[in-house]
Amino acid sequence: MSYSFQFGEILANGDLLLRGLKLTVLLFALAFSGALVCGLFIGLARGSARRLPNLIATAYIELFRNTPVLVQLIWFYYAMPALTGWQPTAFTAAALGLFLNTSAYCAEIWRAGLQSLPAGQWEAGRAIGMSEWQLLRRIVVPQAIARMVPAFTNRGVELAKMTSIASTITVQELMYEAKMLSTQTFLPLETFTVVAVIYFVLIYPGTLAAYALERRLNSKGA
């Protein structure tokens, strides 16, 4: 059983994959940057003592964490238009789904990070008359962020992997182009091997960074 690999033909179509890769990166950047910010507000609501914001945030987080992201993307692309009359493009639906999904996970990271700060820091800020927003911006977030970076990096790794699911709702990102290429060239083995390696090369540095950050954090004893 000797199969002769034909990677040459795949590499010759590198521009196709590169085009897909650009969309993958864009999808990732939009969803991740949005989720980091949005996660803070959901996390604040989740940690709030007030009943209603807490309830809404909890429901949101549990809903998005306990359903497959594929179902979420399908829902935004195929189901939501029936309800709202607004048909997003595949890219918009994917970006929206990934953004909301990652926000739910980021919210939990924010909540844990904010709670890890000693109560005295909040009190000291309040005692000099800071508003809640000033407290967050000047005192709480700058201190909590270092502790949360490894967790956010891990989340980024998960999101990067998730972007591939956008191909199932016809977003022409890397995975989608790979499927096209594999049927055009009749070389699925080579195509998916190359694409797996591309993803690995993109994502693994993130994982390594998370390891390193975690080690540094542990050695600092923070």
Partner: peptide, 13 residues
């Protein structure tokens, strides 16, 4: 560090 979807296709196709 690779998306599961790639592996689904790799094993199937």
């Amino acid at each position: 560090n690779t998306p599961p979807l790639v592996h689904f296709f790799w094993y199937f196709y």
